[in-house]
């Protein structure tokens, strides 16, 4: 479904990706993990055509995203859904209208049908009763569920999640986890999750790609990664404070600096 080949990218001279290859199987849940600042979100933005790589390419559904024109890109996006970190609900509209938004923009369906579709999707995420609430009245977990309903409303073939667990309480997290797995299996959607929550990802993902220092440090099933001896994988999976990703930001010699006379 999604194939990434030889991806290189840098911003202001800082290298973000130096040769990334990955392959997302149709119908699977694939996680992209890695320490903060390794460009996980940037990778997502390239898959959705919000950013273009310096070299290499990203193919989604057989189309090279970086080479698409504007209309083709919009066309491709109609077949994708994306869940933003905080839901990114439109604050002007209530829950119902948020979910109905893509339908109203892209289709000329009669009001009855729109209502039917929206209520079905809201029922799936368990928020049919919240249809009349405004986004400001929702908790973080609810907002993300509404966003999921909205991402699903056009029946996409690919769902992309950006940090879906960040800042959620354990119960909401469990709900979102179950929904991800459910929508993936029930609707035959391909899912890509960007996250750094190890426990949650291990319980939901089929394949994990671990990103570090601009390249893929490890790839495989959750069991593969948990059993790996590679230092970076162990540091990340077990949350060790020091390792290949150092605890200390690069600095001059500690004692030397303390003894130095103030300038």
């Amino acid at each position: 479904m999604v194939v990434v080949r030889g991806l290189h990218f840098s911003i202001n001279g800082r290298v973000i990706f130096s040769g990334i290859d990955l392959n997302v199987r149709r119908g699977s849940v694939t996680a992209i993990m890695g320490p903060s600042g390794t460009g996980k979100t940037t990778l997502l933005r390239m898959m959705t055509g919000q950013q273009r790589p310096d070299s290499g390419n990203v193919e989604v559904d057989g189309q090279d995203v970086g080479a698409l024109g504007r209309t083709q890109l919009l066309d491709l996006r109609r077949r994708m859904g994306m869940l933003f970190q905080n839901g990114a609900l439109l604050t002007d509209f209530d829950v119902f209208e948020n979910v109905a938004f893509p339908l109203r923009e892209h289709t000329r369906l009669p009001e009855r049908l729109i209502r039917h579709i929206v209520l079905t999707k809201l029922q799936t995420v368990g928020l049919r009763g919240a249809a009349q609430l405004m986004p400001a009245e929702l908790s973080g977990g609810m907002a993300r569920r509404v966003a999921l309903a909205r991402a699903m409303v056009m029946d996409p073939r690919l769902l992309v999640y950006d940090e879906p667990f960040a800042g959620l309480d354990p119960i909401s997290m469990g709900v979102v986890l179950r929904l991800i797995r459910q929508t993936n299996d029930a609707l035959g959607i391909t899912s890509i999750i960007v996250s750094h929550d190890v426990q949650e990802i291990c319980s939901v993902a089929d394949t994990i790609y671990l990103l570090s220092d601009g390249s893929i440090a490890a790839a495989g099933t959750p069991q593969d990664l948990n059993g790996s001896d590679a230092q970076i994988v162990r540091q990340f999976m077990q949350g060790l404070p020091d390792g290949p990703v150092p605890f200390h930001y690069p600095a001059p010699d500690y004692h030397g600096q303390l003894l130095e006379r103030a300038p």
Binding site: Q50, L74, R77, H106, A147, R150
Partner: peptide, 12 residues
């Protein structure tokens, strides 16, 4: 709050 990006992702 990514609302503009979300619209882009909804092909709007």
């Amino acid at each position: 709050t990514d609302q503009l990006a979300a619209m882009e992702m909804m092909a709007v």
